[in-house]
């Protein structure tokens, strides 16, 4: 969409006024600074998704809409997670972070902050694997998506 003030609120407003749900939404400017790219995750029947696509296309600032789930695509989300890490837990948390290909990016003598990227379900799985009470804080970006191979969204 056009990288203009207000474009994001039009999209968000559309979803709330028409009763569509937003599971996640990420947006930032692209290599062309006049454009920004948004990945929006939503759920609904085929009819609802069709209406969402049509309604998004109607927004003047939206340049192009594709349903990534129509074809092969890659989806990634970033999560930062702060864990209570003391005693023998420190080793265990480090080991789990390695298994999930996470990185410890901040350390104190009581905590680790881990950076983890992947699909939403991988991040969920990591959280499942951690002990609830040890999780101090999490922050997730929501998914960003891109088509596989030659599948390109460009204008």
């Amino acid at each position: 969409m056009e990288n203009e003030a207000g474009a994001l609120s039009r999209v968000a407003g559309l979803f709330s006024s028409r009763g569509y749900n937003i599971e996640s939404l990420t947006v930032a400017a692209t290599e062309d600074p006049t454009l920004s790219r948004m990945t929006l995750v939503t759920a609904g029947s085929d009819d609802v998704v069709e209406q969402i696509t049509k309604q998004l296309n109607k927004l003047i600032e939206v340049v192009k809409v594709v349903d990534l789930s129509d074809g092969d695509h890659i989806e990634r989300e970033l999560m930062l997670i702060k864990m209570r890490a003391v005693g023998k837990d420190r080793e265990e948390i480090k080991r789990m972070a390695d298994i999930f290909r996470g990185r410890i990016i901040d350390v104190t003598d009581k905590s680790y902050t881990i950076e983890l990227t992947g699909t939403g379900s991988k991040l969920d799985a990591f959280l499942e694997a951690m002990e609830r009470s040890a999780i101090l804080e999490t922050v997730r970006t929501g998914a960003s998506g891109i088509g596989r191979g030659e599948r390109i969204l460009k204008i």
Partner: peptide, 11 residues
């Protein structure tokens, strides 16, 4: 002229 008017309430 508006695709969103089509198949909105009736297929």
């Amino acid at each position: 002229i508006d695709p969103s008017s089509i198949s909105k309430r009736v297929k």
